[in-house]
Design a protein around this nucleic acid. Structure first.
Length: 385
DNA sequence: AAGCCGGGGAG
DNA sequence: CTCCCAGGCTT
């Protein structure tokens, strides 16, 4: 039965980690709760290689929870730009304020209290409690779900509440008895899932190494390694078109702050039309798109007209067609280059002329950042002609 | 329970 | 291309 496995799991896993776990990741040696917290949030749904680049930068810019709490949100978003899931950055900022105001600047060690903070769910609370405070709190991220579903043959879709509850109970049951083992145990779980018990090419199927749980793993014994954890299939993500205005005057480009509720929430981007269900490309629809671009122009600059004859003239021409893939959507962005003879002033604080060389100070969506970087490289081209 | 939110790497 | 991920929040 699995009784023996339950009893010895933590010990065996820690032994595995000593030999084959990942070593030397910068956040592994850290016990400062603030630093642990930042690493846990940044690592959510984000690749280790990416975090290796961005984590030291973030910590250098915001070395303490107080520095983060008192920084302008725009600075935090700018530092977060390119990492995705920007709600994390806004919650990070809000959580820092919470810690300053409600907890006197010190993170609580109780996972139940941690979970009350913005952006910290049950699993992240467990990770922070384990790493920073040696609390016997379980985690249940995608790695752990996969490991447990395979080892104990947990069938049924993991997004079902009953299955999820079962996995949480397992995670809690398997915790090491000694609190001081919590950091290495928690790290071992993540490492084992990330490097050995992987989703597509687990070590037990490649045959290169011998899994320490091979003789006890239910999925292995019943030849269901690639079937578990089971999940419901999601349908193909819908496709959209939209138009974007690349409005330039001299070395500056017009940026618009995005709504916090929208995708890329709170970031600075180009003025953008509504998203339309993707139409087939044809000369006729090309004209329709052009109309949308002109309406968009009218929305941004209600008192101006696109004309090459007036004194402060505007010209419009079709630019790049950029495809961008989200988790649940695919978007084709049609860029429209508009050049103007003068820099119109805007009353709205969400519209702003920004010199190309200052773009680094703004949080931009990744595809827009790349587009504007390309623009900077070819700076000197006169788009007005 | 299902939808929403990014980005990059693996296969 | 598709699938995956150190999830959490909203509906």
């Amino acid at each position: 039965m699995s009784e023996a496995l339950i009893k010895h799991f933590a010990t065996k896993l820690i032994a595995w980690h000593g030999k084959d776990g990942r070593q030397g990741l910068p956040w592994q040696s850290i016990r400062d709760p603030y630093a642990v917290w930042v690493s846990e949030i940044m690592l959510q749904q984000t690749q280790v290689a990416t975090v290796l680049e961005r984590y030291p930068r973030f910590m250098k810019r915001f070395p303490t929870v107080k520095k983060l709490a008192t920084a302008p949100l725009d600075d935090v978003l700018a530092e977060w730009a390119g990492l995705g899931y920007y709600t994390r950055a806004r919650n990070l900022h809000a959580c820092a304020k919470q810690v300053m105001e409600e907890f006197g600047g010190e993170f609580p060690k109780d996972p139940v209290l941690l979970e009350q903070l913005k952006g910290i769910g049950r699993s992240t609370a467990g990770a922070i409690a384990a790493f920073a405070f040696h609390e016997r709190a379980p985690i249940l991220d995608a790695n752990v779900k996969r490991i447990l579903a395979r080892l104990f043959g947990v069938d049924g879709a993991i997004q079902e509440k009953a299955v999820n509850d079962e996995l949480w109970l397992l995670a809690k049951t398997l915790l090491p008895k000694k609190a001081p083992d919590m950091p290495v145990y928690t790290q071992a779980l993540m490492d084992f899932g990330a490097t050995w018990c992987t989703s597509r090419k687990p070590i037990c199927l490649s045959g290169e190494r011998k899994c320490p749980f091979a003789k006890e793993c239910q999925a292995n014994l019943t030849n269901q390694i690639l079937v578990l954890p089971r999940k419901v299939i999601k349908e193909k993500s819908p496709e959209f078109n939209c138009d974007m205005l690349l409005l330039r005057h001299g070395d500056s480009v017009l940026l618009q702050r995005r709504s916090e509720k929208a995708i890329w929430g709170g970031l600075w981007s180009l003025p953008e039309s509504i998203w339309r269900a993707k139409e087939k490309s044809s000369p006729a629809t090309d004209n329709a798109v052009n109309l949308t671009a002109k309406e968009l122009f009218k929305l941004v600059l209600p008192n101006e007209v696109i004309s090459s004859t007036s004194k402060n003239y505007y010209s419009i021409e079709r630019g790049l067609d950029i495809k961008h893939v989200f988790t649940h959507r695919r978007l084709w962005m049609q860029i429209w280059h508009v050049s103007s003879g003068s820099a119109v002033k805007f009353a709205s604080k969400d519209l702003k002329w920004v010199p190309l060389r200052q773009l680094g100070q703004y949080g931009l969506p990744q595809p827009i950042k790349l587009l504007l970087q390309g623009l900077s490289l070819t700076r000197g081209d006169d788009l007005r002609n």
